Amino acid sequence: MIYLRGHHLICLHFFTGEGYSEEFVENLHAVIGRAKNEGIFVVEGADDVCKKCPFLVKRTCKDEKEIAEMDKIALGLLNLKIMDTVSWDKIKEKLPEIFNRWYSLYCIPCIYLNVCSKTALLNSLRNISS
């Protein structure tokens, strides 16, 4: 089972193969593969994505307060809580109903929007809906 924090439950569905470094991107591919095959255990704080993040300092995100709030909103939208287990597909099923709220709250102001790109987000949403 893979360990994921709140916002990663949503954001990983829009991963397009780019990231901070080759090592980070390789880890994202591995995490997504495992999440699809093994399921997900919802955690608080640093997770399996964060392991290779350059902003992780002593097992804590340098922006933890802001990220923790994002996690809280993500879990509320997905109707999940810390220590829940969930499948990749269950999250994928919920994305169409929460996408507009998430996009306006977090994607539009995100400095990494160009990595996901609105086109990729919308294409992913179309794939999610079909």
Rank of each mutant, 00 (worst) to 15 (best):
C116D: 01
V86Y: 03
G6N: 07
W88T: 02
S117V: 02
K90G: 00
G6Q: 02
G17M: 03
C61F: 02
K72H: 12
K90S: 15
M1T: 11
N79D: 15
P96K: 10
G17H: 04
E26M: 11
I32Y: 08
G39C: 06
G17E: 06
K58V: 00
D84Q: 09
L80P: 03
A120V: 07
P54Q: 09
K92L: 12
L95R: 02
S129Y: 04
S129E: 15
E97A: 12
M1F: 07
S130T: 10
G39Q: 09
K52E: 14
K90D: 15
G6K: 05
K62G: 07
I73G: 02
F14T: 01
I67C: 01
V49Y: 06
I91A: 08
G45K: 06
L125I: 07
L113V: 03
N100Y: 10
R59M: 11
L122E: 15
Y3M: 13
E26R: 15
G45N: 07
A68S: 14
I91N: 02
R59K: 15
V42H: 05
F99S: 04
Y103L: 10
N79G: 12
K94M: 11
L12A: 06
E23A: 13
I2A: 09
C61K: 05
F41I: 12
V43E: 07
K51A: 11
L9N: 05
V42N: 04
H7D: 03
D89I: 13
E18P: 00
K118S: 13
G19D: 05
F55I: 05
A68V: 01
F55Y: 14
H8W: 02
Y106K: 10
